[in-house]
């Protein structure tokens, strides 16, 4: 059994390596989301937004900014862990971790926090760019930070599980393309679900991204389509479930050990 100090060292080593990886390839990891989000701000927020008018009591630019920041955090956390852990499997350097005396939960924590770091860095840069287009007066700072951190953890865990199951690089793009992107676009990033008919509103409430986007928007603007408490409960439950699932897969060596 490793002592708490050696466990911390092992965790910090994995985390440091993850940060080193995405900062080394910053033109691939940090720049593209910033450019994409800037285009969203210009096109949806500024050009089209002027014609849309108010949404939820705010200018369209003000309304859309929190959702776009959350979208950047979610997609970057997910893709960081999915691509990093799958690459480690593909190049077999995951074996460096598997032969070392590190518990599985520490390996997962290191990768997940690496994903969180990228998500939050991208989120921060996108926020700074958003400030060029609109003023943001955060209404509930602690809540805002808490929900963005928890969302980053949740989607990093999801990316980790995706990487465990993946057998090819195609497999780590299928979920983001066919599941994550639709859920995000339909998760109230660009509109209030009050605009939808009751049926579509009910259906939207099954979308977990809706809760995170709205909780974050509540933190920034003070308005939400849903009960924010449920968002926190839901995210915590999903984090626990995905962490448990990930640990189960690791301990059974799913696609990692023969």
């Amino acid at each position: 059994m490793m002592s708490p100090h050696t466990l911390w060292t092992a965790f910090a080593t994995i985390f440091r390596r993850e940060v080193r990886r995405f900062t080394r390839i910053w033109p691939q990891t940090l720049v593209p989301p910033v450019i994409t989000m800037s285009l969203y701000f210009v096109i949806f927020g500024s050009l089209i937004g002027r014609r849309i008018g108010e949404m939820g009591g705010f200018s369209y630019m003000e309304f859309v900014v929190p959702g776009l920041i959350m979208m950047a955090v979610i997609t970057n956390s997910y893709s960081n862990v999915a691509s990093s852990f799958y690459s480690a499997k593909f190049q077999r350097n995951v074996e460096e971790l598997l032969v070392a005396p590190i518990p599985n939960w520490v390996i997962m924590a290191g990768y997940v926090l690496g994903g969180v770091a990228r998500g939050l860095i991208v989120g921060f840069v996108v926020t700074v760019i958003a400030l060029l287009f609109t003023a943001l007066e955060v209404q509930h700072l602690a809540l805002t930070i808490a929900i963005v951190f928890m969302a980053a953890v949740l989607f990093s865990l999801a990316g980790f599980i995706n990487a465990i199951f993946a057998n090819s690089f195609d497999d780590i793009s299928i979920i983001p393309t066919f599941v994550l992107t639709p859920l995000t676009y339909l998760g109230g990033v660009f509109y209030s679900i009050e605009l939808l008919s009751p049926f579509w509103q009910g259906l939207s409430k099954l979308n977990p991204v809706l809760y995170m986007v709205n909780a974050f928007r509540y933190g920034v603007l003070g308005v939400s389509d849903i009960n924010v408490a449920w968002a926190f409960v839901g995210v915590l439950v999903f984090i626990a479930l995905l962490f448990g699932w990930g640990l189960h897969l690791m301990s059974h060596g799913k696609r990692l050990r023969h």
Binding site: A10, T13, I14, I102
Partner: peptide
């Protein structure tokens, strides 16, 4: 880095 994995 491998040293770190062993808690060094």
């Amino acid at each position: 880095t491998q040293g770190g994995f062993y808690g060094m």
